[in-house]
Amino acid sequence: MRTDPLFQPVTSEVRSTRTVSLSFNGQSLDVPAGISVAAALLMSGINRFRATPVSESPRAPYCMMGVCFECLVEIDGVPNRQSCLIEVAEGMRIRSQEGARDLIFQAGNVQTANEQTVEVQS
């Protein structure tokens, strides 16, 4: 769910105009190239990144340096990725991480996406 962004580019900065397109939970976003996924989501009004596996509480980045694991999201079908350590790339499909990852569902997903690489037994 998008709200008013908590973060925005500082006005004094001369910015590069290169952008990339990604999607978050199916919604498309245009963000500057070269920044982390976490930064991109925060400036796009994504304030809730995930729900915890323990109590489903909402969480968002806390440390931005790979320590806290609060910024976990699913990127291109791979769950629980630290979005503060990953740079945005064109066409990235990002989803909020809702609780614990689902191995079975995920395996099925990947299989339909790319049948050659996965040998899931169903």
Partner: peptide, 14 residues
């Protein structure tokens, strides 16, 4: 964390 957003992405609170 906020300082990292500033250093690495030029972002500051809205």
């Amino acid at each position: 964390a906020a300082q990292i957003l500033l250093k690495s992405a030029g972002l500051a609170p809205t």
